[in-house]
Amino acid sequence: MDAELLAQLRRGTLEYCVLALLRGGERYAGDVVVELGAEGVLVASQGTLYPLLSRLRRDGLVSSVLRESPSGPARRYYRLTARGRSAVAAFIEQWSPFRDAVDRVLSQEET
C-alpha cells in the first residue's frame, strides 16, 4: 500500500527532479541515477530511472549523447534542452505554493 502511495506521489514529481539535476550541465546517466536512487522515497530502484530518462529524451526535454568509456561500454550523457529548462523552471515556480498548500491543509486536521 505504501509502495502504491509513493508511486502515485512520484508520478508527477520525479521527472522534474531528474531535470533539476541536469540544470548544472551535461551529466553521465549513471551519476544521475545513483544520486536520485539514494533518495529512497523518490525512487523505488535505480533501474526504473532509465526508462524515465529515455522517455524524457523522446519528449525532447533532455538530449543525450553516447561517449566512449575508457573501460566498458559507451556511456550516455544527458543535458537539458531549452524545453526541459523551461519545464523545470515552471515546475519550481509551482512547487512551493503547491507544497505549502498541501502542508497547510494536512496540518489543519489536528487543530
Binding site: A29, G30, V33, Q46, Y50, P51, L53, G72, P73, R76
Partner: peptide, 15 residues
Amino acid sequence: EIVDDISAHIAGELR
C-alpha cells in the same frame, strides 16, 4: 536502449 544503458551502468558501477 534500456538494456544498453543498464549494462553500461553495471560496468560503470563495478569499475
